[in-house]
Design a protein around this nucleic acid. Structure first.
Lengths: 235, 235
DNA sequence: TATTTTTACTTGTACGTACAAGATTAAATA
DNA sequence: TATTTAATCTTGTACGTACAAGTAAAAATA
């Protein structure tokens, strides 16, 4: 049961991207260079690059090369709209609860597997602000004993996903969402500094990852009055 | 400037699927059969099939063949949750406004191009019900003179997308969403039979299509109390 | 010098071949 | 007859070759 050759190319390049050895915007070695590096033909190298393209890691440019993408932008994830993509300084994040061992969310909307329920759980929650004004609170749960020494690690550029990728080489492979419009609870109204009973967007998310049976569960509460939540999907 | 050969294979098969000559769940001709049909090698046929897979039209099954998928399920479109996928009889749809020439939506959230604005616009709106109880109202706009004789055609199985695909061979290639939680307006509250001022999920959508510069604009208002809106995305 | 042409590099398309591996049916065997 | 084996489909991987087409820099030309 040998590994397929195009997987070797694919996984090698993926790891280099995850570790930051190939940064976003830079070009990968040319197909011919990869051929000699791995001792395979262009057919095989191209198959590996095709897979990386499908996974959103790279873009191919005819006549130029394969360029490393910001994968988050290719995933169709939710984002706060009305905000320039580039600047992160206007969007600040405050930990309401730092990562710690906790109980599983009792009223999660996505079914947690028995296996997960037996394990301990890490929970953290964060308040997302735009110009110091809270716009979203985010509660996150995931199975412990899957990420070694997680709580000690500072988030890379404040991004949970980036930390998962660069430290653990775990990528988001898909997600399920449930959208609800509700009256805000008093607790959350206080945190978000909005009037009690205001309408609020409640999003339940189950993220699927490249690590087997490892999922991330989130409950998001968003005040969408000034900054709606955006998402996009393209073939 | 000849068309690429793998595109011939791809587009031929796509058209057959769109026209219903290959129904969902059936198998396409084998790769070798396609080779003789088009007088090309397997490399070329496989490239065409790869593209169809990427577009969500087929699934490949090792040792068996390529099976036709229900593309809507592969698109990550929004759907009413808590509902078995198969049965459509519990979900009824009522036209509030049949398709007719109309003005463009004055307060759309997505910018309409000048080109579109010059053209006339077709508008229709529908009320979606679960067990006769309204759960969503949907307003749709798109440029006229792009779909010949649209208003006369009955929707195939009540589906706008299916009609676009089978009659016009136009497919959805992507979408942009904006999500808001609002207090319901009095008009919509009456239509949905909910109390005035209830929280409601407002979704603005811009669909991208395979037809150049042809977009679909929708505004959805959903009561999510009993049936949340679901969406999913997988690599 | 400024422009055009050539050259060299890149990825894209397409050919052909061979064998591996999964799925299914037919034939051989217990 | 029931089970096992073999044959024969299918798609998957991988080899090698050739040329088209896009890009960019070097060389030739005005």
């Amino acid at each position: 049961m040998e590994e397929k050759r195009y997987r070797l190319v694919q996984n090698f390049l993926k790891l280099q991207i995850q570790k930051g050895n190939f940064v976003v915007g830079s070009y990968l070695p040319s197909e011919n260079e990869l051929c000699t590096m791995f001792g395979v033909t262009r057919t095989t190298v191209r198959k590996g690059l095709d897979e990386l393209t499908r996974e959103g890691f790279i873009d191919r440019q005819h006549g130029k090369g394969s360029i490393v993408r910001d994968r988050r932008k290719s995933l169709g994830l939710l984002n706060v709209k009305g905000f320039s993509e580039a600047v992160g300084k206007d969007l600040s994040t405050v930990f309401v609860q730092h990562p710690k061992i906790s109980l599983w969310n009792p009223d999660t909307h996505f079914a947690i597997s028995e296996q997960e329920f037996k394990e301990k759980c890490i929970h953290f929650s964060r308040l997302r602000c735009v110009y110091e004004v809270p716009v979203m609170i985010e509660y996150n749960w995931f199975a412990d004993n899957r990420l070694e020494g997680f709580s000690d690690i500072d988030f890379i550029e404040g991004s949970f996903f980036k930390t998962l990728s660069q430290h653990y080489h775990i990528e988001i492979t898909g997600s399920e969402h449930e959208l609800r419009s509700e009256r805000v609870s008093n607790d959350i109204a206080a945190l978000l500094k909005i009037p009690q009973g205001s309408p609020i967007l409640h999003i339940s998310v189950k993220f699927h990852t490249s690590k087997n049976n490892f999922f991330l569960y989130s409950e998001l509460y968003c005040t969408t009055e000034n900054y709606p939540i955006g998402s996009s999907y393209h073939l």
